[in-house]
Amino acid sequence: MSSTVSPRTPPARARWRRPSLQTLRQFVQFGVVGFVVFIVGNQLVFGEAAASAEAFCPFGGLETLYSYLTGGRTIAHTHLSNLALFLAVAVTTIVARSAFCGWICPLGTIQEWTYAFSRWLQRRIPPLGRAMNALRKSLNPRAARGTAAGPTLGQRIDHGLSYGRYLVLAWIIGGTITYGSMVFRDYDPWSALLSLAELQLSVGTAVLAVSLITSLFVERAWCRYACPLGATISLMGRLSPVRIERVESACTSCGLCTQRCPMGIDVARADAITDLSCITCLRCVNECPRPEAIDLRLAIPGIHPAAAPAPTSGD
């Protein structure tokens, strides 16, 4: 089928339009981080008279949900705003999949910036660039494509660690229900980041440091391996009718989509990106040199593109 689609360069309008979507995404991310900086600065200046930045954490809403539903009260360090934010994340996720992770989450944004800094360093320090290239090849799902050797050690480790965030989520939910307190707070890198402004160090500070250092080598390491909110969103996102779909007949198998995916998903080998790790950042869509090969689609959840009725005419 691919021979029936003649290669062509993307139209000028598409080339202009597509990068602008990533610019818009980065603008939104920057705005959210700016808002958090404002809140933290406000608290530093006005002390306890100002709202705590923790009051704007949606995961706090999930942690206090059980207490609120069963006793009408929020647990320590959480407020109604946490519940409202979690509700907003849930609504956004059920309709628009994991867009919160890819477009709004400030911790994800900071990891993206960390990785971008790493890429900048790699371009200026050639030996580092070569070492990182080897690591990327090891982790890249396309590296073992077409070989009988199976996944590389890096891919196996990456796959195994990707279940970590579900374990973290299970521990937090179980612990919060059992003890009625935020068992994760002392280990939470986001809480630690907010506390850094007050020069407070905790176990969470170490978790934050490890996450950011790892993000120099693996993009969005915390999101991939440990984020409990990401795990919650990915599970809720299964209900969403929105997903990225790839058209095999239009694809040139260049692999750019897979290379650009910040979550390490093998986009180039999927028909529909239903991988729970997808954060709907749309980088794969934007990077594709064939605009018709990959798109964001509205579809019935659970229906695989191959199972959908065949077209009677091209649209």
């Binding site: 062509r8 007949s249 869509v285 934007n286 798109d295 964001l296 579809a299 593109p305 091209g314």
Partner: peptide, 20 residues
Amino acid sequence: TQTTAPRARGSFRINGLAYA
């Protein structure tokens, strides 16, 4: 020699800006 791949697959395209 169509340049647009067949797309009627039980799903509808969403404009990126509309999604944002």
